[in-house]
Design a protein around this nucleic acid. Structure first.
Lengths: 248, 248
DNA sequence: TCTATTTATTGTAAAAACAACTATAACTAT
DNA sequence: ATAGTTATAGTTGTTTTTACAATAAATAGA
């Protein structure tokens, strides 16, 4: 009996009855951003039971009645748009976290969930609040009540993954806007990791990593508090960096 | 509309008809080992269509008629046993790789697959061939024909993951038996990565990583080819190592 | 027994990377 | 002009890496 088999006679189970093993498959998304000097995640408040009035990650079932069938990634973007009003082009990065298959994770019936974590950059134009019911970015350190379903576990894994990827990948740039300064990039690390990094050493590390950032040739406007205006960079072509950024 | 919803009226899709979105969910396993100085993966030959007579990763559907429902991990162990005769206690390590949800990955109907990668240690007693139909360890570098379904992609991802984890984790010890020498451990790295590593530097790196290996106090029997007998170690308590092993 | 060979393990020195710190550059506000 | 502020470049000692040399402990054959 091989993977992906039709629901016909199951030789291994020694029973020649046809058993329907189909189950619901959903997608949940942990969409992160850095706003207001905080590491935040997008949550929605559930309007129906179970877990009514509790906060949850946005998500929903993979639909089989759209085109030739949705990919899980398409479901992720669709549900984000439907539940929070955030359209695909406002999501800078999306990556699969894994499948969550505890048989009791949904109290009603069997649901497998495929979890994603994504990053929304700091946007220049806030675009106003979405018209969807109740969706908010919440600081991850201030989420006290437990989330619906097993979303505590999913969120915890997503936070771990995001923090780990900062070390050896360039995804930190996804938190920034189109153009950013090295200090803005360093603040992403500091806020997501909850540490403080040496500015000089961070700068040298980033600039010596080939393809991490790309010089725009222009400077940012100097802030009203004074100080030398910082150079503006954009995201480079590299996805990975050979020498990791360390958390101290 | 939230994740893990009942198949009742779908408000977001603006249609008050009940649509059954359930689908088959299967588990596929890439089980690796190092045998005969080669990095090998366990494959089975399919006995039925589609992809009859093609090689595939072992796996099968998550069953809802076992107990209160199987977890995907339980499915992985069950299918390994059923299809290849390898029982759970012969698998040293198992970790989820991710979900594969291309709507066309199975030509018959929609199947989501949750992929795992695992490691089987070099065993002292080979236990003889399994009675299952046709299951063999194949060197990953010698798999020329494409595998069934999207198993090429899954295997490729599994190989990447296994190779990457050698750098910063202690899973290399899972390829070894209960007790092993530093040279045996180094050979795992060399074979899986396809590189050659400096013996002295490797030794120092491993022994200076706290919890990587644990001294048994005994030596291996010296081989017939001569040479100083190597010290025997067992796997330590650490799962991660702070200073990575590099591929050169 | 002696010697060459083999493998494991330890030592050493140059090079690279890191961490902490200092100096300079380029701005604002008074 | 001067002080304060932020960005960026330089400096120095320490740790880590890399390449290579030396020693240890065995086997095999003369």
């Amino acid at each position: 009996m091989n993977s992906s088999e039709f629901p016909v006679s199951d030789m291994q189970s020694n029973q020649n009855v046809e058993v329907d093993h189909r189950m619901n498959v959903s997608v949940d998304v942990a969409l992160f951003t850095v706003r207001n000097e905080e590491f935040q995640v997008l949550l929605i408040e559930r309007g129906i039971n179970p877990f009514r009035f509790q906060w949850a990650l946005p998500g929903g079932r993979i639909r089989s009645d759209i085109g030739d069938g949705e990919t899980p990634e398409e479901t992720a973007y669709r549900e984000l748009e439907e539940e929070t009003g955030i359209s695909k082009d406002l999501v800078g990065y999306l990556e699969q976290l894994g499948a969550y298959g505890n048989p009791k994770r949904d109290p009603r019936n069997r649901v497998i969930s495929i979890a994603y974590f994504g990053i929304r950059p700091m946007l220049d134009d806030p675009k106003g609040g979405s018209d969807a019911s109740k969706a908010e970015f919440k600081p991850v350190n201030e989420i006290k009540q437990s989330l619906a379903f097993d979303h505590d576990e999913i969120l915890s894994d997503a936070i771990d993954r995001a923090r780990a990827k900062l070390e050896y990948s360039t995804i930190a740039t996804e938190f920034c806007g189109e153009e950013f300064t090295i200090t803005e990039l360093r603040k992403v690390y500091e806020i997501v990791w909850g540490v403080s990094l040496n500015p000089g050493n961070f700068q040298k590390k980033v600039l010596s990593s080939p393809g991490f950032v790309e010089d725009t040739g222009r400077n940012a406007e100097s802030s009203s508090t004074g100080g030398r205006p910082a150079r503006l960079y954009r995201s480079g072509s590299a996805a990975l960096i050979n020498l990791p950024i360390r958390r101290n």
